[in-house]
Design a protein around this nucleic acid. Structure first.
Lengths: 181, 181
DNA sequence: ACAGGCATGTAAGTCGTTACATGATTAG
DNA sequence: CTAATCATGTAACGACTTACATGCCTGT
């Protein structure tokens, strides 16, 4: 149950509301794990019933801030220690590359160029995060290591997409000599 | 529905049995998309009812080889053209890195070293595939481009895991001066 | 007053995992 | 004859997505 443990981990760092956690899944965590707000609120409800998290504050608009209890933090640690990471993967953008031969070369090239742009944007975002990085706690340090993975993987994707688009460019140019677009 | 379209794509290349498709999800495709045999057989049943695939041969032990029909291939192409790739991501091994601060430094380092070894193995496998690559059809070419993504991303992970483990090494050495392990 | 963002929740349906269940073929 | 591998399927349960539903606060 990685969602539950992702939540316990974040709530072991410092309090978050369901809204905050949802935002984190959309932002820095988004290249690693995604969860919709409905999933987050449902799981928070279960975790509270089980005594793994508790409400530690409330705010405007019904906001509730949760933090992990000792039991919750222990459960997150136990999960890290005693279970193997699932290797189940979902990477639809690259899955599509396996099917790219079904398209015309210019369509395939356009797809690869969009991927390059997307990854270039993501890389720029990560570079900004790394540039502004505060040097604080151990939690922050682990996040910095995870960020470094994002940084390096995005860089690899940008270079790959350029290499791949060039392959399809060649195929296209061979056919009609047009290098525009 | 990426599973359905992954199947249609593979069955547009050449015939496969449910067993073959399951194996492909465990091997080359496995770093991009995974599916259990139960999911594969269930989806093949639906695709056949919908006329998107058909049985084109049978073999020993009840083996059934399927191929995409024209309608199936058209559906795969339509999906590529008309839908945006889902950005929903599952990458539990890196998710765990965000929680690594909950462990002792030596445990965290051990985790990163296991990841390094895993990715090094995967990289070696991809390098072998790339080395033995046949130069044939367009389908093969798209797979070669997808393989290149795997190759470059795995290389990035190996280098990242080494960088990351070194960080935890330092933390550990600062505490007890032990550089073994 | 209104728009945009903050904030939380429920329900229906689909997708995915795990376990159950069976049996044929092949190589040693 | 026996183990490994090939080969297919179903069922129960849990996870995830999408849509529905509500309402408050802040800035303009």
């Amino acid at each position: 149950m990685p969602l539950r443990h992702a939540l316990l981990g974040m709530l072991s760092e410092h309090p978050h509301s369901g809204w905050d956690l949802t935002k984190r899944f959309e932002q820095s965590l988004g290249n690693v794990w995604t969860a919709s707000h409905s999933q987050v609120y449902t799981e928070l409800g279960k975790l509270e019933v089980e005594g793994l998290i508790e409400v530690v504050g409330t705010g405007a608009r019904g906001r509730k801030d949760y933090a992990a209890t000792e039991a919750g933090r222990a459960e997150a640690t136990r999960w890290l220690r005693e279970t193997e990471p699932s290797r189940s993967v979902r990477n639809e953008p690259i899955l599509r590359v396996f099917l790219l031969w079904l398209l015309e070369p210019e369509e395939a090239r356009a797809y690869l160029e969009r991927e390059r742009d997307r990854h270039a944007e993501q890389l720029a975002f990560y570079e900004q995060l790394a540039h502004d990085w505060p040097c604080d706690s151990a939690a922050v340090d682990a996040s910095r290591i995870a960020l470094e993975a994002g940084l390096r993987v995005e860089r690899a994707y940008v270079e790959w997409a350029e290499w791949a688009a060039a392959r399809y460019c060649q195929a296209d140019e061979t056919r009609d000599g047009d290098a525009s677009g």
